[in-house]
Simulated scan of single mutants.
Amino acid sequence: MIRRTALTLGMLALLGTTAHAQSSYPTKPIRLLVPFAAGGTTDLIARVVADPLGRELGQPVVVENKGGGGGAIGAAETARSAPDGYNLGVATVSTTATNPAINPKIPYNVFTDFTPVVNIAATPNVIAANPQFAGKDYKSFLAEVKKNPGKYSFGSPGTGSIGHLMMEMFMLETGAQMIHVPYRGSGPALNDAVAGQIPLIFDNLPSALPFIKEKRLTALVVAAPQRLAVLPDVPTLAEVGAPNVNRMAYYGIVGPKGLPKDIVDKVNAAVRKVLKDPAIRKRIEDTGSLIVADTPEKFAQEIKAEYTAYKNVVDKQKLTMD
């Protein structure tokens, strides 16, 4: 009886220590891993949020980039991390839907290896062209690529990335045929599109918009709920008859599986508070993005819905990683 009581008291003490450690979280800097190279939309949104989030939590939030594999390399590192709240990752449609949908060897399970924390924002996507490309608007672009199947290439952040599978979805909808050129993130792909090494790119709007504003890229069509104030003359994919491709991209925060609920709730609350700041909202919304700031449960539902949509594209197009 004495031994059992001692064990019980010991377990209660341990639980109390654990609970105290979690309630005092964080006590050291937090790493926020961006699974793409610097310069893309994922990196941009992470850096807008990181500093104010660190101030809100009382510890620095340090952004680290680890690109490659359409986001899979960085996402896998987040999945392997200890569930202590000090290694979080930015989750995108590429890392949690498109890449897993196309790659059976991806080193994580989207539904069991992550803990969704919060969806920060949703961004429009855009098909853009180098100014030297023959098509200067959506109608002439589609006519040109359909007249010359397999002649033109498009860049994306990597095989299995959202830019890759959204263009595959677009080709499935329109009957166009283009050649995919994968990169290690949006930044390098954009640089080659601007330089004319590739004529076309399907990218998230925030990273492409500066080049579009400078007329170094030409926006042809956007994936957004409605025409955008920053590109009022550019139609949406729904307008031009490709409604299934008219999808936004999300940028959220996840942790590894087993992340304690109180840590999830604390980070979620802190992010949502940060996103109420008019200055932070403006920086994100100026890119054409929409603030989401939802619950962990809602974010988990969004991940499942996007995975299902892109798995359908992979199956219909018979896409592989080769």
Rank of each mutant, 00 (worst) to 15 (best):
K139N: 12
R227D: 13
K213N: 13
G10Y: 11
A193F: 07
N312Y: 05
I30Y: 08
G150R: 01
P235S: 13
F154R: 09
A101P: 03
N312F: 03
I263F: 13
I263R: 13
P60F: 10
L237T: 08
A309R: 15
R4E: 14
I162W: 12
T308A: 15
V274E: 07
A121M: 03
I2Y: 10
Y86A: 01
A91E: 04
Q22E: 15
T92E: 07
N103R: 04
G175P: 01
R184K: 07
G10T: 08
A249V: 01
Q22N: 07
P210W: 14
V240N: 09
A37K: 02
F133E: 12
M1S: 13
K213E: 15
N65W: 06
I263L: 14
G40T: 02
G163E: 06
A176E: 05
A224L: 09
V110C: 04
R80K: 14
Y25R: 01
T95A: 08
Q301M: 11
A129P: 06
G163P: 01
A82E: 14
A50S: 11
A189N: 03
G255L: 05
A101Y: 12
P232G: 12
K257W: 07
K316S: 08
K139Q: 15
D137F: 04
V240Q: 11
Y183N: 05
L15P: 02
P29E: 02
Q226G: 12
N130L: 04
L220Q: 13
R4H: 14
A305Y: 15
S140R: 08
P243W: 15
L88T: 03
N109D: 15
A6S: 07
A279I: 01
I303L: 11
P149H: 03
A134P: 00
I2W: 07
K257N: 12
G68S: 06
F154E: 11
V48I: 15
I284C: 02
A224G: 09
I201A: 11
R216F: 02
S23A: 15
S186L: 00
T98H: 14
A129F: 13
G89V: 05
K304V: 08
G163N: 09
G39T: 00
P149V: 00
V61C: 05
Y25N: 03
Y152A: 04
P35I: 05
K311T: 00
